[in-house]
Design a protein around this nucleic acid. Sequence first.
DNA 1: TTGAAAGCGATACCAC
DNA 2: GTGGTATCGCTTTCAA
Lengths: 339, 339
Amino acid sequence: MKKITIKDVAREAGVSVTLVSFVMNAKVGEDGRLDCPVNPETAARVLEVAKRLGYRRNAAAASLRSGRSNTIAVITTDIANNFFGGISRYIEDKSAQYGYTVLFCSSDENADKLDALVDTVLAYNIDGLIVAPVPGGRRALSKAIESRVPVVLLDRDVEDLDGVGKVLLNDIEAGKMATEYLIGKGYRKIEMVSYDLDISSISERAEGYRRAMSAHGLEARVDTTSYGDPQKLMPNIIKDAIERGVEAFFIPTYSLTALVIGAMNEMHLRTPRDLGLVAFDESDLYRLGPSTIAHIVQPLKELGEKSVEVLHSMIENEPGETTIILKPELVPGGSVTDR
Amino acid sequence: MKKITIKDVAREAGVSVTLVSFVMNAKVGEDGRLDCPVNPETAARVLEVAKRLGYRRNAAAASLRSGRSNTIAVITTDIANNFFGGISRYIEDKSAQYGYTVLFCSSDENADKLDALVDTVLAYNIDGLIVAPVPGGRRALSKAIESRVPVVLLDRDVEDLDGVGKVLLNDIEAGKMATEYLIGKGYRKIEMVSYDLDISSISERAEGYRRAMSAHGLEARVDTTSYGDPQKLMPNIIKDAIERGVEAFFIPTYSLTALVIGAMNEMHLRTPRDLGLVAFDESDLYRLGPSTIAHIVQPLKELGEKSVEVLHSMIENEPGETTIILKPELVPGGSVTDR
DNA sequence: TTGAAAGCGATACCAC
DNA sequence: GTGGTATCGCTTTCAA
């Protein structure tokens, strides 16, 4: 089947390619009519012919000529992970509303990969970029910014980057909420289990934890495990903590929580009996386990949708807030009891 | 910052645009040298200039002229879901090896959406399409096939579609394995809980279940719930089953399993005490719950990688197997006991 | 309201 | 090995 181009449609409809282009790009106005300087009857004929011939616009040609692509890129660390996968879905749906196609990529927490991905997506003439920065990824982001591509930071902040949009969680507040919930229930020896990753969301959650502890005259302590190979260390972290008399953990990510629970199972430790837990993000594991697990919920839908909205307004040069800080929510659970 | 084009590089390096194009498209051979008909010294100079100027190929222009895009599209029902999210990740990584950029989209089990997505991605001149078909999606697939875009069916088969590649699980075998595991443990009244979706993977799992039951002279029964609103029905399904004296469930998807477990929790039913369970796919919930849950594992990595490999060979017109049927694996668990 | 024609930035073909 | 140039399909100006 030969490819149908705008020319074929024009010839068949007996009009110029210009007209066809107008019609194909016209948006349907509120009155249901096409808002373009074309005779409605002509437009209807063009539409009919286009449909009959099976015309499909060549995105490459349109993009080449116009410099726009109606495409945005989303670079998270891993679409397979629940948090970013969930957000991605909302991004996808919201983008569709604006008529954007989305390129999703995973950086794997790796700055070099991020750099390569940015090069790739910039080659696509993307109209904008939503990105969850990784440690050392500043240079990659600068490239996009220098190319005048609007950038929205998602989930993680990077300081001193001018002109970028931001859609973040109030992570300090999240850390505080989790910690104060535990303190309110009577826990005193509370530690945080974390990755040794330099990521704003994680370090801010730690900051919130520390502030809450210090506000109650309690001593804070963060146990870190390596992001690369956390499995090995976890049992030791827990063993040492128990020996120190730790009563509860605040765990700032789902993946860490799964590790903690796995290690606790192996050590025949139970929550809340042996250790109170406040986890992060959502999981069936929290809802459906033997004891439900208290956790901090991020508004995935808002995170996803807002990031697209902010990006869109940047692309369209609309004025408006380009930094959005969203509120976490605490979901109580059986992993925390009154003491 | 002005956009750097191939022309700028050519001028600066004192060569023609042709040469630059050659160099930029050359692959590094095994000996570390560029395999293109260009003087190595010239090539080195071009490379240096390109880098210095920050040249980035314009994918739209390349695609327009060459008719290829080095882009493939992947349409699953939902990237946010664990199964497709996991596969997507492997697809992404494998695609990168071949130099493909990937467009991920979600059809939401909706044929109209699939149709629109196919139109969109075809406009991108994609080199190939990996798709998990949805009920009623045949027409959409035909469009791609008519446009001579290689198509690989993932996870779900569609009959009588010529010329497509397929990467599937042996779902009949999976249903059999699950059922025979239960039968071997002494269970007799075994039912399957399923969606009312006409999808080959699910109906084949049911077929496997039925065959295994019938091979042992047992009566099969499939309880279905609606895909749109399964939550409501689940408690009733379980209640009725218990009243019928059902001893175990075979559940062919993760999402259904989460629903079953949730409903069982609410009804204060426990596995394996009240009901044996064999679930599908992987989840921390199976590993880390109060009692581990026996389940059938699909080889996500292979599913993802093979689908890209098959698609690639179709794109390159290489001969080779275009239908791959992968083996499921059974992971025993505490949700099934000897009876 | 309509159309002619100039490019967008690559690649592909052909000539040298 | 190297270079000139037509061309991919569309959008965009400009003129009618």
